[in-house]
Amino acid sequence: MSEPNHNERHITSPTVYFAVYVALLAGVGLTILASYHNLGIFNPILALAISIAQAGLVVLFTMHLKDSSKATVLSVGCALFILMILFGMVFMDYYSRAWGSW
């Protein structure tokens, strides 16, 4: 254990932040551009996919999840899983209501 600098965490360099920044700007451009083209069902899917990719970049690099402890990574995964349960099971009810009773 190197004693004095023990609490100096890994410092992310501004280049990484800048790269993420540029990628995010490109993502915004792409989202707006795509929304003005008729892609049918893929319009919302593409928009959400870009948003998720952007969020992923921010979470991993800007928020340093990549360098975080396993506990943090696991908690984030766990919360996203439960969020998907909330979305998925509520939608399941609404979707299958249209089928009527059996």
Partner: peptide, 10 residues
């Protein structure tokens, strides 16, 4: 009033 299919799963 939830769907009977959802009720089954739950």
């Amino acid at each position: 009033g939830i769907s009977s299919y959802a009720a089954l799963v739950f």
